[in-house]
Every structure is written in structure tokens, then in C-alpha cells.
Computed example of a mutant assay.
Amino acid sequence: MDGMVGSAAAPDTPVHVALHTSDVDEARAFCRKLFYGPLEVTPVGDLSGFAFDGDVVMLGSVTVGKISYGSDIHVNIADLETAYHVLAPLTGTLRSRHRGTTVLADATRAAVYRPVGAIDLDWPGDCRLMSVKVDRAALERELDATLDQRIVSPLLLGESFDMVDGPGRTWAALVRLLHSELCADDGLIRQPRMAARWRDMVVSGLALTVEHPYGVDEPAGLQGPRRPRTVKRALDAIHAEPWRQFTAGDLASSAGVGVRVLQEAFRQHVGMSPLAYLRRVRLDGVHAELSRSDAWQVNVSEVAYRWGFTHLGRFAGAYRDRYGVSPSQTLRERR
């Protein structure tokens, strides 16, 4: 492998990992480690041509890989849970089944996957593709901010989009450029501030490219109330520094209102108190970090402290309430 996923890497520090192998088990372990734990890769037919080629870059909430197997395979993935995903073939045609819909993805059309629902892929040997993983919280937060209203989670996204014309063409080109630049050692994107901006462009570009029902004409029952500026200011403060030890008074000051006014506005427009929302953002951050790490790379306590949790007992209880498992289980199961 080229490169290593390190726990000390800053969120905007690019990580590049590559693997070229004819060993099926090694290829399967590589994909599980960098994308999803519950992933099964099963060769179909003759294995003589099996030649896995994976070139993956990670940048905070975005993981982009150029992947091919060299021979026909079948891939099955359980619920993604913590991410949205796009498969954009460069060559060949991928047959994808997700949530009762079959998509034939090729160089003209990408397949899109929501966090809920198993994924079933028939992946021919001549198919080489860009595999793009976007953390669930990052995409939902981006669409929420773009629309300035509450959204349904997980997002009700379309199952595919066009990569020949319109926004899809631009987004696919951006992803390819991001990948090639992060694979190099001397590009401008290696500067942390530039890397963060490119990462944000990939997330915001996807939010604007993929089909969703959250526009002006969305169906009754999906539309959320528009959020007042005071709530948006507090939300922006939380997402800018989720690890900061905010009090209700701190958030109210950032919003320019009193504590009671902000709490009532949050209950009405967010569905929970400001501090409850802050805790959810922190928990999602810890969960995302543990989900993409190996047990030997990170320490649960260190990750929790980094995200602003100072009482580990309360953190562990809140984590189990939200995800149904302990933090250490998440770390073990995503190896």
C-alpha cells in the first residue's frame, strides 16, 4: 500500500492509499477498510484475470477512489448508515440494485446510494469507476444550509444522474480532478486551506447535482419551516467549532438573542434544544471517525475528547442511545 490512514491526520489533510493485487481477500479487506465494513466481494467465473486496482484519496468528509477488478465480480453491501455514495463509471457498465430500483451506470450516468437500503452490484471486469463516499452529516448539513429549511433524513435522493450534460458533468469532472491532484505530492490542493475548499465544492456540488424533492414544489409533508437568522447563526457557530465548550448563553450571544428566545426558536425550527443539537453533531462526528478507522489507529477516548466530550461515561451512554452500540463496537465492526 502507498500511504497510511493515521489517527493524527487533521481533517483537511489529504490521505492517499493505493493497492494493486491479484489476491481477492486482500482486495476485499482494502475496500472494507476504506469504504464500508459490511461489504462482500464475490468473484464470478474465471479468476485468472483478477487484478484489483484501487487508488483512494481521503479528505475529511469525502473519500474518492478509482477502482477496478479486472474480472467479473459481484458486490453486496449492507446499509451504508453513515454515508451517501456515488459510483461513476469511467469505462464499462455497472448493473446496480438499491431500494428496489435497478440502474445501469456507465460513462454517461452515475448511480446514487442512500444510507438506508442494501446495495447489490454486478461489476464486469472491464468496468473502472470513480467511487465517491460523502459522510452523511456533511451532505445533509450542506443541503439544509442551501435550502435554509429542515430536511428529511436520510435525504430522499434520486437513484442516478446524468454525467454528460448540466451539473452532473461539472461535478464528475471536479471529482476526477480532485482525485488526480490528491494522488500527486506537489499540487496546490496539498495546501490545507485549498484542500478544504475543494472538499466543500465536492459536497456542495453533489447537493446541487443529485435530484431531490426539497425544492419550492416539494410535496406536502416534506417541506420544513424556513429558519430565522438567529437559528442559522447558532447553527453556523456549532458546525464551525463543534468541539468548543459552548454554553446556552454562548450560542444565544452568537445569535444575538436571549437564551429563552433561542431555545424556543430551536424547538420550533430544529426540533431540539441548541445544546441537544450540539451533542448530536459531536456524536455524528465521533461515529463517522470511528467508522472509517481501525482499532489500532485510534483511541475512543481521544476521539471523544477531540469532538468536545469531557465526561466519557455520559458520552458512552449518549452514543449507545443514538447508534444502538458502544463506541468500541463501532470501531471493531468497521475494521
Rank of each mutant, 00 (worst) to 15 (best):
S301F: 13
Q297C: 14
L312A: 11
R280T: 10
V303L: 04
V281E: 02
S301R: 15
R306L: 10
L283R: 00
A276H: 04
G313F: 06
Y305V: 15
R280E: 10
L278E: 08
L283Q: 02
D284I: 01
G285I: 06
S301N: 15
L283N: 04
L283D: 03
V286K: 02
G308T: 11
S273V: 11
S293V: 01
T310H: 09
L283P: 05
P274G: 10
L275G: 05
V286A: 06
L275N: 04
A276S: 13
E289D: 08
E302N: 12
A295G: 01
D294H: 13
L278A: 11
E289R: 13
Y277P: 00
S291K: 01
D284M: 07
R279C: 03
M272Y: 00
W296H: 13
Y277C: 00
F309N: 08
V281S: 07
P274M: 08
N299I: 12
A288S: 05
G308M: 07
D294S: 13
R280G: 07
G285D: 06
E302P: 02
G285N: 08
G308W: 00
V286W: 02
E302K: 12
L290A: 01
H287Y: 11
G308I: 10
G313M: 09
A288N: 03
H287V: 03
R279I: 07
L275A: 06
W307N: 13
F309K: 08
V281I: 05
R292K: 14
W296C: 12
R280W: 03
A295C: 07
S291P: 04
